[in-house]
Structures are given as structure tokens and as C-alpha cells.
Simulated scan of single mutants.
Amino acid sequence: MDKDILRSRIIEQRKKRAWSQVEFAKRMNVGRSTVAMWETGDRVPDTPTIHRLAEIFDISADYLLGLSDNPSPVIKNVDDKDGLAFIDGETPLTEEEKEYLKESLELFRRMKAKREQQKP
């Protein structure tokens, strides 16, 4: 783990959301001084805290740690048979949920195609 990348990405993500150190500390349930130490590199968050940071920022822990340049969270639930992938959801989708999502996607595609046909 590169400590400089971690601290800079914490700063980047906090500022991206326009959070003060105090506001961010409240969201993390830590003191402002802890946030300041993370951001100066004087303290490195432990593994559970890195997981919490990734959740709060809605980014991957790999991105925070400098193991990836892609901040997108990792897809947790993939249904290969149907080709459906979702970022959240620890439990598998029901057949009814899958059908609803497929129908919604199909409706979206039809509406998009219609809008594109109407463009001058």
C-alpha cells in the first residue's frame, strides 16, 4: 500500500463532496484529528476503516489503496446466465426481480431509440 496515494485519495474524495474535515469525521464516526492524521499521512486507517471509507465514498478499496486507477466499486453480484450485474445486493435476485429489471431495460431501450429517431 502506498501511503501517499491513500492520503491523497482520501483528500480528493472528501473535497469532491465538499465535506469539511469535521463533517467527514462525523460521517466516519471518528474525531477530526483522526481525519487530519489520515490526510497528512501521520496515521494509516486499518482494514475495517478502509472498507468503511470505500462505502462512504462509494468507491473501491483498491482505488483508495492505489491498486487500481478505477474508482468504481467492484460488482458484487453477477448473474452470468442472464447477463445481469449489480453493484449492491448481497442476496441473489429473485426471478420476479430479474424479470422486472429486464422489462425496465427493454422499455428504456425502446424509449431511447424513439428519442433518437425524433432528433433533427
Rank of each mutant, 00 (worst) to 15 (best):
S33V: 09
L107R: 15
I5Q: 09
T94V: 07
G41D: 06
Q118C: 01
D62W: 13
M37R: 09
I75L: 12
S20M: 08
A25W: 11
G83N: 15
F108D: 00
Y63W: 11
R17Q: 06
R110I: 07
P120E: 13
Y100M: 09
T40S: 10
R32M: 10
L53M: 14
D88P: 00
E116W: 07
K98W: 05
N70D: 13
S60G: 03
E103P: 00
T34A: 13
H51Y: 12
G83Q: 08
A25N: 07
P45C: 07
V74H: 10
D62K: 05
R14D: 00
E12F: 13
D80N: 02
I56Q: 00
D69Q: 12
R109F: 10
R32L: 02
I50W: 13
G66F: 11
G31E: 13
D58T: 10
V44C: 03
S33H: 12
M111F: 10
L53R: 05
K102F: 15
K76Y: 06
K16M: 04
E96K: 09
A113P: 01
G66C: 06
G41Y: 13
L84H: 06
K15E: 14
F57A: 08
M111I: 07
Y63I: 01
F108L: 05
P45W: 13
L84C: 04
K98Y: 07
P92N: 12
E99V: 08
D58L: 14
Q21M: 15
F108P: 00
Q118Y: 11
G83S: 04
L65M: 09
K98C: 01
L101T: 02
T91V: 14
Q118K: 13
A18C: 05
E116A: 06
R32W: 03
A25G: 08
I75Y: 05
L107W: 15
L64C: 02
R14L: 02
K15G: 00
N29W: 02
E106N: 12
P120R: 12
S72V: 04
T94K: 03
D42C: 02
S33T: 14
M28D: 11
R43V: 11
Q21D: 03
R32S: 05
I87K: 09
G31M: 08
T49G: 00
V30N: 05
I75P: 05
I87R: 14
S33R: 11
L64N: 01
S68W: 14
L6P: 00
G41C: 10
S60N: 07
P92Y: 01
K98R: 11
I11M: 08
L84D: 02
K119H: 10
V30W: 15
E55Y: 04
K114P: 00
P45L: 15
Q117D: 14
D82T: 12
F108V: 01
N70K: 12
K15M: 14
